[in-house]
């Protein structure tokens, strides 16, 4: 799981890109490309380096009329995988 207050951020060198040739969104990272499905793209589109994980999943639940705990669970698994590959930073506020 991801801490509700953690702020997901795409670090320098990682960016969303629309691949015109393959007609799909991808995440470009150092020497790696991740093909995004609609859900992955929807989640990453909300990642702005400002809003917390909690804010993002609340927004997604409302936008897609889906149960919030399910959205949070799926988003956490997806973002955790990216973080383990160093394609995403999870910033926690210093108390």
């Amino acid at each position: 799981m991801i801490d509700a207050t953690a702020i997901p951020t795409l670090p320098r060198g990682v960016r969303l890109h629309f691949d015109k040739v393959r007609d799909t969104w991808v995440l470009l990272a150092p020497e790696r490309t991740v093909t995004l499905d609609m859900i992955g793209h929807a989640i990453l589109s909300e990642v702005d380096g400002v809003r917390s994980f909690d804010d993002i999943t609340a927004g997604l639940a409302e936008k897609y009329q889906a149960p919030r705990d399910q959205i949070a669970k799926d988003s956490a698994a997806f973002l955790r995988t990216l973080a383990d590959r160093r394609f995403l930073d999870l910033m926690t506020e210093v108390a």
Binding site: H17, D19, V21, R22, L28, E31, T33
Partner: peptide, 9 residues
């Protein structure tokens, strides 16, 4: 890029 290359080394 037109051919579909995304990563250039």
């Amino acid at each position: 890029a037109e051919l579909g290359v995304l990563q250039l080394h």
